[in-house]
Amino acid sequence: MTPYGSFSFFIIIAILLAPTVILGLRGKRFQSYNIVVSVIVLALIFGSFWNEAIVLILFTIWQVLLIKGYLAYRRKENSTTVFCMAVILSILPLSISKLSPYFFHVHLIGFLGISYLTFKGTQLIMETRDGLIKNNIPIVRLLYFILFFPTISSGPIDRYRRFEKDVKAEISKEQYKILLYDGINKIFLGFLYKYIIGYSINHYFIANLGSIANSHFQNNLFYMYGYSLYLFFDFAGYSAFAIGVSYIMGVKSPENFNKPFISRNIKDFWNRWHLSLSYWFRDYVYMRFIFWVTKKKLIKNRNVSSNLGYILLFLLMGVWHGLAIQYILYGIYHAVIMVLYNSFEHFNKKHKWWPNNRYTKIAAIVITFHFICFGFYIFSGHLIHS
């Protein structure tokens, strides 16, 4: 059963979460019951895929042993070598899952949501290294965080300290009413985005481009715009479902989108699109790279180190989607335009070439929109295979 992929899934979730709603409206704690619900839903999701279920269990044991082991180690020692080994071992299953089809023509390891579960596990190790997580994490709470079912397949990627705060919080009847209201609103928004707007774009526009477009160029142009809008509404709809169900369960999972198509520049776009993933790569890849080159005094020019950080970040993000040529080109494309914009931003601060007024803001939004759409066009693979 695919999460949020059918109306039967929503009916099952509604039935399972009915006691949660009743307890919440009465001001009673419901997190223990929610853990049971998560186990049931995971069994439903993976029940028909025993191979994936076994890999998920083994993967979870692997991550828990790494996290608990590193927590115990960090209270006594702080070796960089041990930390790097823990991070490498944490991302090893994901790396094998992503790379194995290109070398062995089969997925050696893989299951629904392996990327997002890996991000959670690696994040815990990194925050333990930074001293942000010091206390022992109860095994049940750790499992609940890693396997939290509303966000298991495609995020949003939550942070443990924020998640723990929600799980431990006492929620009053009035507070839960607000969460329930917001959660239901987000679920209805998800239906609007994914099953009405997104479906309509894909089914009635993209699928009929052959009869709409008058030329090959026009076909590709229409596809670029159509695919970009479809990708947003489909993914934003899924995210709204995940966040809405999380709210009903008393967990305020982070937002994933913030009007990305009105971004004024490419940096602004990555602060609006797939926020939890963007922030994860920013905090655990880009910032750590900048800190490392600064500490080691490898690069004195901040602009150069920043640009190298962007190149590393977007190349990794592209490869994370897969080794298909369109994903690698997508990563390179965003690395290039981010470096170009970063250089332009530094130039403009000195020379004030691009004024800041209402007309230039509108122009910036239009220009950025087209750069974004072309990036999604590359991502789709249509540029290569059309």
Rank of each mutant, 00 (worst) to 15 (best):
N342A: 14
Y247K: 15
I290M: 10
Y333Q: 10
I262H: 05
W280E: 03
K252F: 01
M338T: 15
V251D: 01
F289C: 08
N265A: 05
L312E: 03
S305V: 07
N265W: 09
V285Q: 06
V336C: 10
S276H: 02
V339Y: 01
I311A: 11
L277W: 03
M249D: 07
K300M: 10
R302W: 06
K259H: 08
S276E: 02
S305C: 06
L315V: 14
N258A: 05
V339Q: 01
R272A: 04
K297T: 11
A324L: 13
V319E: 00
L316H: 02
L298E: 08
Y310R: 12
R272P: 00
S253H: 03
K252H: 09
V285F: 09
N271E: 14
L312N: 05
F261M: 03
L313Y: 07
I332C: 05
M338K: 01
L275C: 08
L323W: 12
V339P: 00
Y284H: 11
I299C: 02
S278T: 13
N303P: 04
Y330A: 05
P254Q: 13
L298S: 11
V293Q: 14
N256D: 07
L312A: 09
H274W: 03
S263M: 04
G331A: 10
F289I: 05
T294Y: 08
Y310K: 10
V251W: 00
G250A: 07
Y279P: 01
F289S: 06
S343N: 13
L329W: 04
A240E: 04
Y330C: 08
L329A: 13
E255R: 08
D268T: 09
N307H: 07
A324P: 02
I311V: 15
G331N: 05
V336Q: 03
W273M: 01
N258R: 11
F241Q: 02
G244T: 02
K259L: 12
D283N: 14
H334P: 07
D283R: 08
G318W: 03
H321S: 04
G250D: 07
E255H: 09
S246E: 03
S253F: 08
Y247C: 13
K300R: 12
N256I: 03
E255A: 10
Y310Q: 11
N303W: 13
H321W: 09
R282F: 14
L316A: 09
Y286C: 07
Y247M: 15
W292S: 14
N265H: 09
A242R: 00
N271V: 05
F291P: 00
I248P: 01
T294W: 06
I266S: 01
F289Y: 14
W292E: 12
G331L: 06
D268P: 00
S246R: 04
F269T: 06
L329K: 00
Y333S: 12
V293N: 15
G318M: 09
K297N: 15
P254N: 12
A324K: 14
V339S: 06
S306T: 14
M249H: 04
S246G: 15
N342L: 11
V245Y: 03
A324R: 11
I328L: 13
I311L: 07
M317N: 12
I328K: 08
F261T: 06
W320N: 10
K297F: 02
M249K: 04
A242T: 08
M249A: 13
Y333P: 12
E255L: 13
S343L: 11
K296Y: 07
L275A: 09
K295P: 05
